Amino acid sequence: MNVIPRQKPIFRFAPSPNGPLHLGHALSAILNYDMAREAGGRFLLRIEDIDQARCTPDFEAGIFADLAWLGLTWEEPVRRQSLNFPAYQTALQSLIERDLVYPAFLTRGEVKARVAAGEAGGNPWPRDPDGTPLYPPDDRARSNEERKQLLGSGLKHAWRLDMDKALSEVGGPLQWHENGDGETGDILADPSAWGDVVLSRSDAPSSYHLSVVVDDAAQGITHVVRGLDLFHATSIHRLLQALLGLPQPLYHHHRLILGEDGKKLSKSQGDTGIAEWRRQGSSPMELRRRIGL
């Protein structure tokens, strides 16, 4: 098992500047910072700004202000995904050359129609652990000649991992070591539950799954501390690490902060941000107590 050597531990907090940080982000950032200090390790900050349409300088400045108010310090320079697109393209190209990915041309509307048609007979369409329907097999079944013609026409496309070929390539079961707030110990990965995951889109040079494993390897991350909502996604990350020859960090998936509706906090739902708690007069210590630290 290709685990990162146990040298000086390196932790990271990796927010996206597409909205204000909320209490869930505060929990993750503080846990990473405190665990790094307790282990005599390093704490890094990474800005995950691949989505150039939604990520803004103002939100990024807000991240820095919120973390500084919480009393956290981090090493410079900060890694920004927008400055590392070539690294993701190199990783993707290696998978293309090994015929482990394929161009996917179906639009969202076409995928929705395929799913609806498939379920019309009463058979449920398979879904990933997040509840999203798996990608239809249409593009995977295309011949190389047909793919070349479609690519040559300039038709917009994504690149998707051929899950069956990828699993055959690694040749055996994958696992990761977990010491978080849910299931712990050596966890058996199940990448197949996600189907042919997208690794790159026409409007984004990399997906979260591809960029996060490339970034963690580039920064020498030894401990990944993040929310339980990403627990099952670790199966994809372990597969990509194995395919790309990248080291395997240790994982700690922590509890989530839930809103009054029982759902995890979300930027898109406008849940109260750290900056708003600050404006209301809360102190960093009061916020720590609010999130159970």
Rank of each mutant, 00 (worst) to 15 (best):
R140A: 15
L150Q: 09
G131K: 07
R42H: 12
Q269D: 04
E178M: 07
A116L: 11
G118S: 11
D203T: 11
W69G: 13
L287I: 11
D190H: 08
I96G: 07
L188T: 15
L155M: 13
D229G: 05
P20E: 15
I236R: 01
Q248F: 00
R255I: 01
G220S: 09
I30E: 15
E60K: 02
S268K: 01
R160V: 10
A166Y: 00
W176Y: 02
L155N: 05
D49N: 14
L250D: 05
L258H: 01
D128H: 04
K263F: 00
A218I: 01
S16E: 14
G41K: 13
S283L: 13
S192Q: 14
E145N: 06
Q269E: 02
A26V: 05
S16I: 13
I221R: 02
H157I: 09
G273Q: 01
E260D: 07
K148T: 10
R80N: 08
L240C: 03
G220A: 08
E119A: 10
D216S: 08
L293H: 10
P124Y: 05
H223V: 07
G292W: 02
S82H: 06
R279N: 13
G122K: 06
W176G: 03
P173F: 00
A275P: 03
L83P: 00
S94N: 08
I221W: 02
L188H: 10
P247H: 03
L134Q: 13
H253D: 05
A104T: 13
A275C: 05
D66I: 10
P205C: 13
G259K: 00
L256M: 07
P284T: 06
